[in-house]
Design a protein around this nucleic acid. Structure first.
Lengths: 203, 203
DNA sequence: GTCTATAAATTGATAGAC
DNA sequence: GTCTATCAATTTATAGAC
């Protein structure tokens, strides 16, 4: 049946996401994906010819969640500081719901030849001009100090992501390995990052 | 000979570093390490009983380079802003010399049970009090605004590391995949991060 | 579409000669 | 210490029945 086919394909993809994201491409076993999907191993090859193809599908999906498509908040010329707060809040929310996606993506792109990444990025369609022009215009207006928009946006994203990808280390060193304390830390993070950025650039 | 033994062991460790760091634990083949060390595969098992042990040696070594032991710059009570500049400069220098270490470490600790990480951290001995007390004292003195020292130090490290671990993506999206432009960006990074931080916290 | 059985290749690890 | 040969286990992928 067509409905069944879609169903199975989805089950496979969901299982594959789980395993690939938590164990990486090399650490993933097709058998584990099959088990998690509740199907036979050879059925994986029926839907996705090989491991590479299945991985590709997962990677593409994950990249969409990782890339801040949220840039559109900078489109209109409302209050820039509010927009920065919104951007940070939404991006941290997104990552919170999928805290292992960033590590997965970053790890894989650092191994892959870039052509793979280029294709996915083109599909997503991220445009740096969305924030660049906005920042330049606010510098001219005198709302913020002079700053390279690229450096600024990279700073923001770095501060949003790092608590998630660095958690195992940070939690041990800084929070005496307390999950509770780390969750508290994450909760305060939105406001802290926004304050940190705005304090740095406001004039 | 004793000298030969050390020599071979070093050759193995150097080869293992190269392969493990670039391909991760799961992606690494003992054969490749042996080839790169110019020795036989079974000689690896003679020096390091198994893959796990060899990986452990590499991980421990790499973690030392990743962890900012540089915290000692905050020890005396000189000019905090100068100290922050120094910290950022030294840390970025360190990473620049081993740009793939951070990704390697972060990826592995996100898979491992934390007990592994805890042991290594204990060996290194990083103490958050080194910066905490320093920051609190400067807040009291009125040099800087009120800020959680943990949030501050994590912000700084995040901004130092991210350009390296996110390079494949950032370079494509922000710099039209130009290596030249990215190197320029990295060069300006020390000053930019320091400025960004100091502007944010100074009173 | 889904399963069983099995091929084919890889890989970590050991035995044993020198 | 170092090598050759080889085992034993794993793992991707395919062939073929239903």
């Amino acid at each position: 049946m067509e409905a069944d086919k879609i169903n199975t394909e989805e089950k496979i993809l969901n299982a594959a996401k789980e395993v690939f994201v938590s164990k990486g491409k090399d650490g993933t076993r097709m058998q584990e994906i099959a088990d998690k999907a509740g199907i036979n191993k050879s059925l994986l090859h029926y839907y996705y010819r090989n491991k590479e193809k299945l991985f590709g599908a997962v990677f593409q999906f994950a990249f969409k969640q990782f890339a801040p498509k949220i840039m559109s908040v900078f489109n209109d010329d409302g209050d820039l500081f509010v927009q920065i707060e919104t951007f940070i809040s939404r991006y941290i929310d997104m990552i919170s719901k999928n805290p292992f996606i960033p590590m997965f993506i970053l790890n894989e792109v650092n191994k892959k030849d870039t052509s793979f990444v280029i294709n996915v990025i083109k599909t997503i369609g991220i445009n740096p001009d969305q924030y660049r022009e906005r920042i330049y215009s606010e510098i001219e207006k005198g709302t913020i100090r002079e700053i390279d928009p690229n450096q600024l946006i990279i700073n923001i994203i770095a501060m949003c992501l790092f608590p998630f990808i660095g958690r195992p280390i940070i939690q041990i060193i800084v929070f005496e390995d307390s999950n509770e304390d780390y969750e508290k830390f994450l909760k305060s993070r939105k406001k802290e990052v926004a304050d940190f950025v705005i304090n740095s650039i406001k004039k």
